[in-house]
Design a protein around this nucleic acid. Sequence first.
DNA 1: GTTTCGGTTCTTTTT
DNA 2: GAACCGAAAC
Length: 676
Amino acid sequence: MNALTGPRGIQRIPVPRDSHRGISLKFPRKRSMQYDIDYEQALNALQLRVVREGDGYALVLAGAGSGKTRVLVYRLAYLIQQGIPAQNIVLITFTNKASHEMLSRAAHLVGRDHHGLWGGTFHHIANRILRREATHIGFSPDFTILDREDAKDAVNECIKKVVLTKDPAFPKKEVICQLIGLAVNSQQAIGSVVQQRYEYLQDFIPAFEKIGQLYREKKMKANLMDFDDLLYYWHQALLLQPIQEKYAQLFRYVLVDEHQDTNHLQFEILKLLSGVHKNLLVVGDDAQSIYSFRAADINNILGFPKVFPRVRIFPLTINYRSTPEILSFANQSISHNSRQFPKELSAVRESWRKPEVVKTDDVYQQAEWCLQKMGTLLQEGISFQHMAVLFRSRYQAVELEMALVKRGIAYIVRGGVRFFEQAHIKDVLAYLKMRGNPKDEVSFKRVMKMQKGISSGYAEKIWQQINGGASYEEVSRSLPARAREGFGRFLGVVKQIEALDDPAQMIANVVDAFYREYGKLTFEDYQERMLELEELVKVSEKFDSLKSFLSDLSAYEGFKGEQVTDPHAPQEVLVLSTIHQAKGLEWDTVFIIGCAQGSFPNPKCVEEDLLEEERRLFYVAVTRAKNRLYILYPVLRYTASGGLFFGKASLFLEELPASVYTAQDCSDKYNSAPQY
DNA sequence: GTTTCGGTTCTTTTT
DNA sequence: GAACCGAAAC
């Protein structure tokens, strides 16, 4: 059973029956036969108040492990039970996974009545709405969504058009993408974002603005949107009176999870969506705001009461998840931050062991220590699915991965490369996208560049010619021999899929006609990649048209190595995860590795604001653990150039009183590096 | 002018 | 590993 969320008979505080004022909804005295939900059994007094009295503008400050998911699920069930049609409720979550989990839990309570509810991430819901309203903002409904890599490439082309002479001081395309994204999400001019976050680049502001302009035009011409555009154009659409009217009328209740990680643009969307019925309930924890690099603005939650003076605030401060020892460790840590709602989480669990802080020689010993401890835990009856290893940065897990592979232990890594962002998946999908959206320049060029003899130069020329109305023969004649052959092969593949509309068949055809051979020559691990393409065929079989497949692609968040097709398969595998990806999850046992100076906090985050965010990240990691928490740090660091560093524990450990943990020193016990 | 290939550099977090 | 750069090859 899931201890995450609820008290289950832990305490029974009497609830004042008439404590809500001016609320039109009444809690039914007689429960309907249809669903017998025992709210009072399932929820504590404060949780119950949120569920029953969450009308109007409401802010739920839900500390880690305080049952926030449970509250949202029951609130949902309550509204439906009150007779609110599901299609008039929108539940915005941080990941689509969280949305699915909440909806399926709500389904347990109210059966099929939750069907039609609008659930998902901001981006997911934006996608759904924009497919309907695209024509109002200058797009056609079959627009293609660019992922981060595609967007980067497109921006790069714009950079080349603006910056003609190479300047070594000009920032890389990643940086440009980042600041264009920040500008959109925080609704600021690129110039002011640069002033605030990249002051040293201010000489380039005019160039940045030109690039941003060009990029926006390019996408519009090609009927493309990047992730940020989904929000940008959703907001643009909502600024049109009839559309605003339509959706603000439709959404009688707007529920928002993880509000601390929303950005300015998202908050504006929320204001517009809730503008008619004025039922906006946001749930969040300012102590867990960890996405400022995506323009998340902690002021959205800290300043919520200022924006809506009549807001009601519900603080949930009882933690049902962790032992008091883990909680006091977390509380001690977060108390070093200055910007937060004052609060302290209190524990109801029984006292148990303190968290252990383990000093090791290096990353190999760190991995070994984890494995040995896991062995002990297995003997105690804790299986791998109840353990997780968390880290600040993806690269910190590699030594542990090697050790796990060596022992044949199954694991998945969350964070890093996503299934749909791998080169071979994107290659094959580019063919389908090209067919689905003939204006899709990015996919067309990607497909062209797979052919030998054609690289970005000819890909551009071919694209220009075809758009200028040239026939295939004309294009072919204009090319040099090598490129002409490639173009011929391309036409062959296109012919294969021309007449099809079934995505699974199209994928299989592309692979058979071209990609299998191409893959053999391109990838060393070609066989694995072919297996993943088979996986892709399976995923696509669920869709009966190309259109529905393509418009739903963005909803998938699965990672490489995870079962994309069957997310509910029971998993006996160990989870290795970035802390960011671990948000909202919990395990019996948590290992946090790499808590050393120079790794965590990330050295690039030295500014005061960012340091506080790093500390919140540490807080998130710590509060994932229910019973056992092991925090490890290696003192030796190998630099890229082969040098050795002596490091010490993370600032976040050093600043804590020694009384909140037990320390273990494993360094010096170490003889020679194991060979992997 | 364009492509290809071999070397070098660096890796924060993500819808 | 993959992204970038420069030099050789077409």
